[in-house]
C-alpha cells in the first residue's frame, strides 16, 4: 500500500442521542480506491458526513495528508483537499452547469490532479453539451455526473463518493464505474460508499465493511470477493 492519505481512528458519531458509529478505523492510501461497504443504515453515509465535518456530534481522530481535520468546519476540510459527493447529489438547480462548477472551484493544489471545466467536459461529454443548462433541468444521471464534476473543481486529493449507484439505472451505473477507474488513473484517491458488490469490485483496490456502525472486515477487494461467508453476513441476501 502507498503512503496513507486519510486515516480515521476510533470514530464515534451520533444522530441526536442515538449513537450510529462505534470506533470506526479506516485508511485510504494515496492513489487508492477503497470501497466502504455495508447495508443500508450500516453507517456508510454517516462515516462520510462525519469525516467531512457535516455531523456535529462526532468523536475520534481523523488525519488527512498529515493534518488533524476532526473538529474543523466543513469548508476548511474541503480546502485541505478532501472532496465530498453526497448521496442525493445536491445540485444547485437554479444555477447552470458552468455556475455549478464555479461554486466548486478552488485554487490548484500540489499532489492533486488539476481540473478545469474544459478537462471535465472531456471526461463527461454529456455535460459539455449543455454548459448553460440549469441543474434542475437535467436527468438524474446527468446530475450525478455534475455533482462529481463540481467536487473535482476543488482539485481534491481524495474524494468521498457516497453511493453513486443508488437509484440510478444500471446503464448509468456502468458509466459511473468507468469514470472512477479513469479518475484513479489520473492519480485521485477515492473513498466510495457502496452496497453493490459487482460495482465495488470493478473499481476498488480494497474494501472496508461496516455493520451496525462497526468495522467488520478490512482487506483487499479480491479477498472479500472470495470470502462468501463475510459477503453473506454483512452485505447481500
Amino acid at each position: 500500500m502507498s503512503a496513507t492519505l486519510l486515516s480515521v481512528r476510533g470514530l464515534d458519531a451520533w444522530y441526536g442521542r442515538a449513537q450510529v458509529l462505534y470506533g470506526v478505523d479506516l485508511e485510504v492510501g494515496d492513489g487508492e480506491v477503497v470501497a466502504l461497504m455495508g447495508r443500508n443504515g450500516a453507517g456508510k453515509s454517516t462515516t462520510m458526513k462525519a469525516i467531512m465535518g457535516l455531523l456535529a456530534a462526532r468523536r475520534g481522530e481523523i488525519v488527512f495528508a498529515g493534518e488533524r481535520i476532526d473538529g474543523m468546519a466543513p469548508y476548511r476540510i474541503s480546502r485541505a483537499g478532501l472532496g465530498y459527493v453526497p448521496e442525493d447529489r445536491r445540485i444547485f438547480t437554479d444555477l447552470t452547469v458552468l455556475e455549478n462548477l464555479e461554486v466548486g472551484r478552488r485554487p490548484l493544489r500540489a499532489g492533486a490532479p488539476a481540473w478545469s471545466p474544459e478537462r471535465l467536459f472531456a471526461l463527461f461529454p454529456n455535460l459539455g453539451r449543455m454548459p448553460q443548462r440549469p441543474g434542475g433541468r437535467m436527468s438524474g444521471g446527468e446530475q450525478q455526473m455534475l455533482s462529481v464534476a463540481r467536487t473535482l473543481m476543488g482539485n481534491p486529493r481524495l474524494v468521498l463518493l457516497d453511493e453513486p449507484s443508488e437509484g440510478v439505472a444500471p446503464v448509468i451505473v456502468e458509466q459511473m464505474a468507468d469514470m472512477i477507474v479513469e479518475l484513479k488513473k489520473q492519480g485521485l484517491s477515492v473513498l466510495l460508499s457502496e452496497q453493490n458488490v459487482p460495482f465495488a469490485s470493478a473499481v476498488s483496490d480494497r474494501a472496508c465493511v461496516l455493520e451496525k456502525g462497526q468495522v467488520r472486515f478490512v482487506g483487499a477487494m479480491a479477498q472479500l470477493e472470495a470470502d462468501e461467508a463475510a459477503r453473506r453476513e454483512y452485505l447481500e441476501v
Partner: peptide, 13 residues
C-alpha cells in the same frame, strides 16, 4: 437492454 439494463455486468445480484 439498451436504454435500461446496459450490458448487465454491474447489476447488483
Amino acid at each position: 437492454r439498451e436504454v435500461y439494463f446496459g450490458s448487465g455486468r454491474l447489476v447488483r445480484t
